[in-house]
Amino acid sequence: MEDQPGNKAGGGGDRNAAAGDSSKGHMIPVWFFIGLTLLTYGIMILVTGIHELSHPPATVLAELHAPIWWGAIMAVIGAIYVSIFRPRC
């Protein structure tokens, strides 16, 4: 058969697995974009949550301060992704 597992089925050189594998290519992995987005949003939501400590919103369970821990979780996951998949020269 033409296609065996592990073979590439189309052109594109080694930029390919760039979509998912940072070690192979020139293209920035998609995981880096995900990390950047989560990190940015996580920080924004965390800062908003800290601000809400003195100005609580009129939502149910506001006393749980969800923006603080949810923002922190997003920021940490985002930072890990950015760190692992950042573009390298």
């Binding site: 189309g10 594109g12 930029r15 697995a17 760039a18 594998d21 998609v30």
Partner: peptide
């Protein structure tokens, strides 16, 4: 065309 219509057939299983 393979790039535009089929993303170069280069996506990993996860993506």
């Amino acid at each position: 065309g393979e790039d535009f219509f089929l993303a170069g057939r280069e996506m990993t299983a996860w993506v």
